[in-house]
């Protein structure tokens, strides 16, 4: 498989945010026997044009109301900022309508959207997007139309598949044990397992993370997360922003 390595940008170590993370029991990521599973699922409807830069909305206050319609409407939920991991709340913008933004929400069910006011967030953009093919066990990072990185992945096994859909990175964590099952870095995703309501004391959130078992890459081994090599996730951590879109298909 072709791999192209771009010169990494200098690592940025920003002042650490006082973490108010919910501590959970960290269980080892038990691996089910590798299975040869046929490709399932299709991308969710409404996937945006992947070639255009994606817009990212970061909440500037300590919370934000999400409404069902632009220009008002019922408040469906209020999301706090920072999130449970102490990271500023971020959304992927799907469309704009005047002063309102329709954003992808990091809540169940996967693919949920809502409307927020544009004056309550800071907007940035990114040309990067990640495409994950669970059928081919590959990921590809694009910078606009240019493929800049590709590699092998491990995906969810039979009873806990990685659900296809459109997501985005919600935070970047550096596990305390870099030799543990999450590897050196873990990007949380806005999506959740569709077969697990909870996992390891958490809400069953999906992620793209490194691994301490690279022999398992190229197989269906996880409980829904996408595993990549530590080298690949390090490159992602040095180049991709929180809010970058991730399309999973297979």
């Amino acid at each position: 498989m072709r791999r192209s390595t771009m010169p990494a940008r200098p690592a940025r170590v920003l002042p650490q945010i006082a973490a108010a993370a919910a501590l959970a029991v960290l269980t080892a990521c038990s691996s089910a026997p590798a299975e040869d599973a046929s490709a399932t699922g299709e991308p969710t409807a409404g996937a945006a044009d992947g070639t255009a830069p994606a817009e990212i909305a970061t909440v500037v206050g300590d919370g934000i109301d999400v409404r069902t319609e632009p220009g008002g409407g019922e408040v469906s939920q209020t999301l706090a900022s920072p999130n449970d991991f102490g990271v500023d709340r971020t959304f992927l913008v799907e469309q704009k309508r005047g002063e309102w933004l329709e954003v992808l929400l990091p809540v169940r069910p996967n693919g949920s959207t809502g409307w927020i006011r544009s004056d309550e967030v800071e907007l940035t953009s990114t040309p990067f997007r990640v495409e994950i093919d669970t059928g081919d066990f590959t990921f590809t990072v694009f910078d606009g139309d240019e493929e800049v990185r590709t590699g092998v992945i491990g995906t969810g096994e039979g009873e806990t598949p990685t659900p296809p859909g459109r997501y985005y990175f919600t935070e970047l964590l550096r596990p305390k044990d870099p030799e543990g099952p999450y590897g050196v870095y873990a990007f949380g995703l806005s999506g959740f397992s569709e077969s697990l309501e909870t996992f390891a004391g958490g809400p069953g959130q999906l992620a793209v993370h490194g691994t301490n078992d690279e022999d398992a890459l190229g197989r269906r081994v996880s409980h829904g997360c996408v595993r990549v090599s530590n080298e690949d996730v390090t490159w992602m951590a040095e180049n991709l922003p929180v809010g970058a879109p991730v399309e999973i298909s297979g």
Partner: peptide, 25 residues
């Protein structure tokens, strides 16, 4: 669209937060 996006700064790479993940693994 390009004109609008030019006014929007490009997002920087993510800042890693030391934490214990509880993802599905």
């Amino acid at each position: 669209v390009e004109d609008e996006l030019e006014a929007i700064e490009e997002a920087e790479a993510a800042a890693p937060v030391p934490a214990d993940p509880n993802y599905t693994g």
